[in-house]
């Protein structure tokens, strides 16, 4: 591809790419926000087994987990405006970024809802009963007892989701969004130093992923404070128990990126 390999290009590309990092992070943050809200709304009918709505949730999840994000991006970007035209809504002036965030948000929502559902179900049934027994309402029990525990269980898988999302956002360049991957394409084309631009890009993704992972790990340690031990015997026992609930979720989520379950 083009010019011979030149190491110095990597160094000059990095700051240029970093100038678009904010767009990538903006897509991640926006999608996460939408994803969490949507995920919660999609998870509820399944947790409470509300007929019909529950089935809609399942179909939604299957669609977003069972089709490639790339196709989802195309469908929303090219298909949604057509659909809205039928309802006499003109969205031709809406920025591409909005479609991108919407698609990734809905996509993340599907995974998030599975995560929320699995985590809530992994909380020991006895905890809810104890909450009821001291006289709490269902809502109080959920907010005070189940949620904090489910959150602690969910965080490790949540970290994986965030990092997968970060990497997935690279596909936004196919719609012409100038996020990091898009920028690296442009730099490559301009200078004919594609390899260097991809190396620079990979390095940045690596560092950001690593930083995100560390941050989420730190958060997890805070939330799992109650499982921190003072004696070694108990700590092995508890690590075991923690691993069991973690494994249960990981198995449930193991279809992770790719599975369809109708």
């Amino acid at each position: 591809m083009g010019e011979p390999f030149d190491f110095t290009y990597i160094l000059t590309f990095i700051p240029k790419l970093l100038s678009t990092l904010q767009i990538t992070l903006f897509i991640v943050a926006g999608s996460l926000l939408i994803g969490m809200i949507v995920g919660f709304l999609i998870a509820l009918p399944r947790l409470y087994q509300i007929p019909i709505v529950q089935t809609i949730s399942k179909v939604y999840i299957s669609f977003f987990r069972g089709t490639p994000v790339l196709i989802q991006l195309f469908l929303f970007y090219y298909g949604l405006p057509e659909l809205l035209k039928l309802a006499h809504l003109d969205v031709s002036k809406t920025p591409v970024l909005a479609f991108v965030i919407l698609t990734y948000g809905l996509h993340t929502g599907a995974f998030m809802s599975e995560l929320i559902r699995a985590s809530v179900m992994a909380v020991d049934r006895g905890q809810v009963e104890a909450a009821y027994a001291v006289g709490m309402t269902g809502y109080q029990a959920f907010v005070r007892i189940i949620m904090p525990q489910a959150l602690a269980i969910a965080i490790p898988v949540f970290s994986n989701l965030v990092i997968a999302l970060l990497k997935d956002t690279s596909l936004a360049f196919t719609l012409g969004v100038m996020e990091m991957t898009g920028k690296s394409q442009t730099l490559g084309t301009l200078t004919q130093h594609f390899i260097e631009s991809y190396i620079a890009l990979a390095l940045i993704y690596l560092v950001v992923s690593f930083a995100l992972e560390k941050f989420l790990k730190w958060l997890e340690n805070g939330l799992l404070q109650h499982e921190q031990q003072d004696t070694s015997v108990r700590s092995t026992r508890l690590t075991l128990r923690k691993n069991i609930s973690y494994r249960r979720i990981v198995t449930e989520m193991s279809t992770g990126k790719g599975g369809v379950d109708l």
Binding site: D124, G126, Q127, E129, A130, A131, A133, I145, H226
Partner: peptide, 12 residues
């Protein structure tokens, strides 16, 4: 109020 066989203390 109930005292459970498995204690069921709020773990967190």
């Amino acid at each position: 109020a109930m005292v459970f066989q498995q204690y069921n203390l709020f773990k967190h």
